[in-house]
């Protein structure tokens, strides 16, 4: 079975989905492509089931927050505030890997406190269940269609999502001083 290069994988996805691949970066250490959240399920199904690709394994889902809380440094930060969700996939059959990203606004409809929506892929890969709960817990992404989207690491009554850059540490938690 042929092992595909990252460029070939991205080309295969582009061939199938055409303009729905928003952008790609081939000179990165892990070449990646960017898609819209709306196309996620379709693209993932293709990646998993196509006989050339066969990505049976989801290595990780990560949330990345691009935000500079210091207003003075914000113009020099080199990026607009946004959030990314990064998916790493591996194929056991062909021994190749793929990376792709979703680019989201930090808050849904720019209303602070409203978490951005992403469709859940836990129906495709069982392992996504806990990964998505972790991303929800720490980075604050709402995975639509997840069977049980609750906090996985922090306690259930925790306020906020700690890996967001504008997160404020709790002053106290159940009577224990926090700062």
């Amino acid at each position: 079975m042929p092992k595909l290069k990252a460029e070939e994988i991205i080309a295969a996805v582009e061939e199938k989905f055409g303009g729905r691949v928003k952008s790609k970066k081939l000179d990165a250490i892990d070449p990646f492509f960017v898609i819209e959240p709306g196309d996620l399920i379709e693209v993932c199904t293709f990646l998993r089931d196509d006989s050339r690709l066969r990505f049976e394994m989801l290595n990780s889902i990560s949330g990345v927050d691009y935000f500079e809380p210091d207003p003075k440094k914000a113009p020099k930060a080199g990026f607009e505030p946004h959030t990314e969700v990064v998916y790493h996939l591996s194929s056991i059959t062909h021994h190749h890997r793929a990376v792709f990203k979703l680019i989201l606004p930090r808050w849904k409809d720019n209303k602070p406190g409203e978490l951005p929506d992403v469709p859940s892929v836990s129906s495709l890969w069982k392992t996504a269940n806990w990964h998505e709960r972790e991303v929800f817990d720490l980075s604050g992404i709402n995975f639509v269609g997840h069977p049980d989207l609750t906090r996985i690491l922090l306690s259930d009554d925790w306020v906020g999502h700690p890996l967001r850059k504008d997160y404020e540490f709790p002053l106290e938690y159940h009577g224990i001083r926090g700062r």
């Binding site: 922090l154 700690p162 997160y167 540490f169 709790p170 224990i176 926090g178």
Partner: peptide
């Protein structure tokens, strides 16, 4: 450490 108690003597 957002979730670490700053000393067990608080508990």
């Amino acid at each position: 450490g957002y979730n670490v108690v700053k000393g067990v003597d608080l508990v």
